[in-house]
Design a binder for these strands. Structure first.
Lengths: 111, 111
DNA sequence: CTGGATCCTGATGGATACTG
DNA sequence: CAGTATCCATCAGGATCCAG
């Protein structure tokens, strides 16, 4: 909230929203693997720490890329499901997948 | 160098290489604005701190997305220019541009 | 002056333990 | 199951410094 984007550039803005090591992975799990619950996101292959997962889910909900939908009472439980805006990031995820497959397979990481 | 990727997923691998707030912006400057020198990268609209710029340029060179080409002796000066692998990230940058233009224009940031 | 390197401080990341 | 809390390590960001 209340923070400003670094610039008017749409690329910079996109990075301000999803430009970190986990956010797009959470979105991938939601969009391509259909994961919905906290536990489903948590137990993906990359083992995101629970505090970061909670934070990323909250952010994604706050900025309108995911929405919380209740699926159970007592105790209240929620599914995290992509909004149309959330689905709109699929092309960037696909582009990353293509890039990763073409250039990063079997290649040692540098950083 | 010796670090391992978080998983075999090509998306996760791509994020391990370019998944932070600055790397893709540097790549954007190189690929779409044709910037080459340290100063050209530094004086973009987003004002990246010099230490981060130096670090990101080095990483990008180390992982083969940019290469240093000398263009002057005494003192040695270099251009940072995209390799073919570097050019291969253009689709992800374009996808981010599309997303940013469609969904983030005039919208307040959340984080 | 360009191309960084260094230093310092506050923010973020990440592992694990704990709670409703 | 779905998160919080805690603690420590690392990184970001800004200022400044240094070498060619």
């Amino acid at each position: 909230m209340g923070v400003t984007y670094r610039s008017e550039c749409p690329i910079a803005r996109t990075l301000d929203v999803v430009g970190d090591k986990w956010t797009l992975l959470v979105l991938r799990d939601a969009l391509v693997f259909g994961r919905k619950t906290f536990a489903e996101f948590e137990h993906g292959r990359e083992r995101i720490p629970t505090n970061l997962l909670a934070d990323r889910l909250k952010r994604l909900v706050d900025c309108g890329l995911l929405k919380k939908v209740p699926y159970q009472e007592a105790p209240k439980r929620y599914h995290y499901v992509p909004t149309p805006e959330g689905e709109a990031v699929l092309p960037v995820i696909r582009a990353m997948k293509d890039f990763g497959e073409k250039y990063l397979e079997g290649k040692a990481p540098v950083a």
